[in-house]
Amino acid sequence: MPEGSASLQLAVGDRVVYPNQGVCRVSAIDVKEVAGQKLTFVTMRREEDGAVVMVPEGKVLAIGVRKVASAE
């Protein structure tokens, strides 16, 4: 991610809310080559049905992904 860009610090195992998809758990953060460029992807699995969603790390905030609020 370019320096100075806002990002959401995620780790494998974090629970997040993905708008219009529901609650997901981060299952992987991997670098993949797409069209000759190396990009970091956040892979999330929906808790409702296990569907897998992959989002480029740089788009996580723009999409509206946020961490699940704690009970505290």
Rank of each mutant, 00 (worst) to 15 (best):
A62Y: 06
Q9Y: 11
N20L: 09
V26T: 01
V55N: 02
E3S: 11
A35I: 03
A71T: 12
K59P: 04
V65D: 04
R15F: 11
I63G: 08
V26K: 00
G64H: 06
V26Y: 01
F41H: 03
V68D: 07
M44D: 00
R25F: 09
R15I: 13
G4I: 11
A28H: 08
V55W: 05
G4E: 12
I29E: 00
T40P: 02
E47N: 01
K38G: 03
V34N: 04
K59E: 15
G13W: 02
D14I: 03
V68G: 06
D30Y: 13
P2Y: 10
N20P: 10
V55T: 03
E33V: 12
S27Y: 13
G64K: 05
G58Q: 11
V52Y: 12
V53F: 15
V53Q: 04
Y18S: 03
A35C: 05
R46F: 09
V60I: 15
S7M: 11
Q9C: 03
V65G: 05
A28D: 06
N20G: 15
E33I: 13
E72M: 12
S70I: 09
V55Y: 06
D14P: 01
E48H: 12
L61A: 13
V17Q: 07
N20W: 05
M54N: 05
R66C: 14
Y18Q: 02
V60A: 14
I29W: 02
V42C: 00
R66K: 15
V16D: 01
R25S: 07
V60P: 02
D30L: 12
L10R: 00
M1Q: 12
T43W: 11
I63V: 11
M54H: 07
T40I: 10
V34S: 06
V53M: 15
V12E: 02
S27C: 01
G50F: 04
Q21H: 14
A62W: 07
V16F: 07
V60G: 04
G50M: 04
L39H: 15
V12T: 03
E72Q: 11
M44L: 12
K67D: 08
M44W: 01
S5P: 13
V26I: 11
L8Q: 08
V42W: 03
G50V: 02
F41C: 00
E47G: 01
Q21G: 15
D30G: 14
P2I: 11
M54R: 09
S7I: 13
A51H: 10
G22C: 03
L61G: 08
K59Q: 14
V52Q: 07
P56T: 07
V12F: 01
G22Y: 05
S7A: 12
V16Y: 05
S70Y: 09
K32W: 14
K38C: 02
V34D: 05
R25C: 00
L8K: 06
V68Q: 06
G4T: 13
E48G: 08
M44F: 15
S27K: 06
G64A: 06
R66E: 14
T43G: 01
A71N: 12
S5Y: 11
E72P: 11
L61R: 09
L61F: 08
V31G: 01
G36D: 04
G4Y: 07
R46T: 02
S7E: 10
P19T: 04
K59V: 15
V16K: 00
P56N: 06
E48T: 13
A28G: 08
T43E: 07
L39A: 06
V16P: 00
V12G: 01
L39N: 04
G22W: 04
R46I: 03
G13T: 01
L61M: 09
V68L: 14
T40N: 06
Q21M: 15
V34R: 05
G4A: 13
M1K: 13
C24K: 00
A28M: 07
R25L: 13
E57L: 15
G58V: 08
G13Y: 01
G50I: 03
P56I: 06
S27V: 14
